[in-house]
Computed example of a mutant assay.
Amino acid sequence: MLGTIERIWRYPIKSIGGELLDEVAVDARGLAGDRLYAVRDAEGKFGSGKNTRRFRRMPGLLQLQSRYPGGTATEVPELLAPDGEPVPDPNSYVRHYLDRNDVEVAREGAISHFDQLPLSVLTTATLDWVRAAVPGVPVDERRFRPNLLVRTPPGTPPFVEDEWFGTTARIGDALCIRFQRSSERCVMTNEAQQDLPHSPLILRVIAQAHDMRLDALATVEQPGCVQLGDTVELT
């Protein structure tokens, strides 16, 4: 057994704060409704913490939050202002918030909203190491935007996720995932969000200790449901 599911995170709108869940369905695309929407500009680039071929840096998005009303991904997600209140018109709000008239909150089309693979898994062992490496800087898993935080047994070394690459794990009764590789981290790990202040130290220590990489990215081998407390076992 690798550990148990400690937290489940879904991010209805890419690069915006997400929602904690007790359980959720998972299919080949990932958690139902995860990153199904994104802030998109007139050139078709998605709001992010970086500038790339597909992404446009839009500072401040992490101060916002998103959730599906009633917890179901069949509805359009709500956008929440920094004070936690839902906004009546997400498009108007993000245009004013970003001071840009060319952006909208758009559903995924032909181009995937995912940076890489559909599922990100992080362990408490690695998260605890980051906390110890940057004393005085508030750190929790929101810095790294995993879908699943796995509580690992005492004594588990940091970056244990590396040992899982190329293996398949069962989560709960039916869900099976295959660990592929880790995420290459960017400046989003340093960004301020809600009660977490900006700090350049976080990305710096990850770069020095682990070549900018942290978590385990996975594909879904067999759809299923994940719940808090589910065991994660190699198959």
Rank of each mutant, 00 (worst) to 15 (best):
M1A: 14
G3A: 14
G3K: 09
T4R: 15
I5T: 02
I5A: 09
I5M: 07
Y11A: 08
Y11Q: 09
Y11D: 03
S15Q: 09
S15R: 03
I16A: 09
D22S: 12
D22Q: 15
A25G: 15
V26N: 06
V26F: 01
A28N: 07
R29P: 00
L31H: 00
L31A: 09
A32K: 11
G33H: 07
R35P: 02
L36K: 12
Y37M: 02
A38R: 06
R40H: 05
D41Y: 10
D41M: 07
A42V: 13
K45I: 06
K45L: 11
K45Y: 07
F46Y: 13
N51H: 14
T52F: 09
R53Y: 14
L61G: 04
L64F: 08
L64C: 03
L64H: 09
Q65C: 05
R67N: 03
P69W: 12
P69Q: 05
G71W: 08
A73D: 13
A73E: 08
T74F: 05
V76K: 15
L80E: 03
A81D: 14
A81R: 11
P82A: 11
P82M: 04
D83K: 07
V87W: 05
D89S: 07
S92W: 05
V94H: 08
R95D: 02
R95Y: 01
D99G: 10
D102F: 06
R107N: 02
S112T: 15
H113D: 07
Q116V: 12
P118T: 07
L119G: 09
S120L: 12
T126Q: 04
L127D: 08
D128C: 02
D128E: 15
R131Y: 10
P138Y: 04
V139T: 08
E141F: 10
R142I: 03
R142E: 08
R143E: 06
F144H: 07
R145S: 02
L149S: 03
V150I: 14
T152W: 03
T152L: 04
P153W: 00
P153Y: 01
G155E: 06
T156C: 10
P157L: 06
F159M: 14
V160M: 01
T167V: 01
T168W: 00
R170V: 14
G172K: 09
L175V: 02
R178S: 11
S182C: 05
S183H: 09
E184T: 15
R185N: 07
R185Q: 11
V187E: 13
M188E: 11
M188T: 15
T189V: 14
T189F: 01
T189I: 08
T189G: 00
N190I: 04
Q194C: 04
Q194L: 11
L196M: 14
S199D: 12
I202D: 04
R204D: 10
R204V: 00
I206E: 00
I206M: 06
A209H: 08
D211W: 02
M212K: 12
A216H: 12
A216I: 08
L217A: 00
A218D: 02
A218P: 00
T219Q: 04
Q222F: 05
Q222V: 13
Q222D: 04
V226E: 06
V226R: 12
Q227L: 10
T231L: 11
E233D: 14
